[in-house]
Design a protein around this nucleic acid. Structure first.
Lengths: 340, 340
DNA sequence: CTGAAAGCGCTAACAA
DNA sequence: TTGTTAGCGCTTTCAG
């Protein structure tokens, strides 16, 4: 006989069975709501369960069935991710929906170098793909339902749902052009992310479409952090032939640009028009409300989770690739360029 | 014989044992780095493990040992929690440390009405206590290591680590008094949270200490949301005898107050001095940098997790209650009151 | 409608 | 140093 390992005596299915005078099989049937149980027995068992405060061991259930209701949310950790508004929105959207769907949410702030143990995980949401492509492939190989959000993974045989960064950016720059701007700068996000890369492409596409020459000096590459945004803004404003407008890849960086401009005695939008990206509520509380591109993060996150839960329950198995539209939100940070 | 339940053939300890020509026990020993394995065997097994890409089933391990490395982070969900800066800081701090400590982070955005299944959970971090006291007691009864953060749970027999909200608030108001203010308002946070309640108490304590009468009309109760902060600010500024300074229970609300003041044509800090609470980076990017009380959220979160991991590993079992100091960060949003 | 029994993948006595 | 064996708590055939 072995010694008890569990720190404290915990009620098991055996205890319930004994107390109800039935076999553990019957108890299991009651737990799983199988129809084939005499009503009297069912009631009795349910009573005992309530009385003993019995909770089935999800561990044992998962081990026995090979099914798991654990959803892993994998967020690649890179500089600035956590100041990105984006991360919290994802967690918020997915976290609340998980509670509703009775799924266990496992949060992985992944380093993408270590290979995570996937056993016991029912499904995975990959938030973007940053050097962790191999993790996705592994999961797929293991037949674990997966979905990618915030990255339109064209070449991956997997469902994904993303925001139309390309058109969002293009529209933002189109808007600046429509105001009369010809010298339009761009502060990129971290170009390892698809979002930042597509916003950059959208910027270029708009310029080309509008016959505005692309000027490399007007492009400032950052890692999405406020620090680099600050440096970029300083460089931008110090140029001999400065741009009259700037499209910034995130609102938090755009706010930093505003702050720098102010510190340097510039007026927004008179001296510089600014468009951000995100529709971060913080953009509302500066002296000049930020014009920005709204992206439906919560919607994307929740749609992704729903899709995944369908995959997990086997109610669906075709892959699907969804692109969500963005929306330009015009506020106060842009105007016609002023000739000097 | 039973049919395979697992969606795809997955490598188990048996496969490894067979391929290495030893028993599963020996494989188990290698996995768990027990010394009593002949070097040749150990090497062989490790080779096979790598080759077959074997990963032990954490489920089975947990079931067999009764130990679990899953840490649940329970965040009560109430209005405004997710705009609170605080939540993300906690998740960030705990999430990154969990990766380091090789703990699985289970995120629960708890509704506190439904009783969560605790089986298979190794330890719990309760972020504040909001109507979920019974959950804590249950966990303690089940002998699951627990720790409360952001709430100095005096009357609970459990470790906790919190920030000194009382003194933080008191110092903030003391500072306003030292500037010459006598009419000092307070916009509270959600008073169901201990933090908001203590900040309110600190406010009152400072007034009393400085012989300033407490005026009920100067107190505006909110749920931490920007919406209610806006309403409070409007009421505050419309009073016939308005306060000359206000201590606001969070930075995000303080920013809202600033915005409202600006909209109403008031100048900060000339017409109204403002002190916030949090040291949220957003406070830096308005036209007037926000004076605030810095609280060490990440430090608190990580210290809590470390403590918990000690408890979980059995290296410690005395309870400990820690209070972390805050720091007043003086920036630009306060000045002497102006006589009119 | 019910229960005995075999397993899910692993760990830990115990004996060798 | 190693293997045998008995569980951990549950599900699921299969035979009643």
């Amino acid at each position: 006989m072995r010694v008890k390992k569990t720190p404290s005596k915990t009620v098991s299915i055996h205890d319930v069975a004994r107390a109800s005078g039935v076999s553990i099989t019957t108890v299991s049937r009651v737990i799983n709501k199988l129809p084939s149980v005499k009503e009297a027995n069912r009631r009795k068992v349910q009573e005992v369960i309530k009385e003993m405060k019995y909770q089935p061991s999800v561990l044992a259930q998962r081990l026995a069935t090979g099914k798991s209701n654990v959803v892993a949310l994998v967020i690649p950790r890179y500089e600035g991710i956590f100041y990105s508004f984006y991360a919290l929105e994802l967690i918020r959207g997915i976290g609340t929906l998980c509670e509703l769907l009775k799924l266990d949410l496992l949060l992985r702030l992944s380093d993408s170098r270590i290979t995570p143990n996937l056993k016991g995980i029912g499904g995975i949401i990959f938030a973007d793909i940053i050097g962790n492509r191999h993790h996705i492939e592994e999961a797929v190989a293991l037949n674990i339902p997966c979905i990618v959000i915030n990255n339109y993974a064209k070449d991956l045989n997997i469902s994904c749902i993303a925001v139309d960064n390309l058109r969002g950016a293009e529209e933002a720059v189109d808007y600046l052009v429509s105001l009369g701007h010809k010298k339009i700068a761009h502060i990129t996000g971290d170009l390892v992310t698809q979002g930042a890369a597509l916003r950059f492409t959208g910027y270029q596409r708009s310029l080309k479409k509008n016959n505005i020459p692309f000027v490399e000096n007007y492009v400032f590459r950052t890692d999405y952090s406020r620090g680099q945004a600050r440096a970029a803004a300083e460089d931008l404003l110090k140029m001999r032939n400065p741009a009259t407008a700037v499209f910034v890849a995130s609102d938090s960086m755009a706010l930093e640009v505003m702050a720098v401009a102010r510190e340097m005695g510039k007026k927004i939008p008179r001296d510089l028009s600014i468009v951000g990206f995100d529709d971060n509520p913080s953009g509302l509380y500066g002296p000049v409300a930020l014009t920005t591109v709204r992206q439906p993060l919560i919607k994307m996150a929740q749609a992704g989770l729903k899709e995944l839960s369908l995959l997990m329950s086997g109610k669906k198995n075709n892959i699907e690739k969804i692109l969500l539209p963005t929306e330009l939100v015009v506020r106060e940070s842009c105007q016609h360029p002023v000739l000097k």
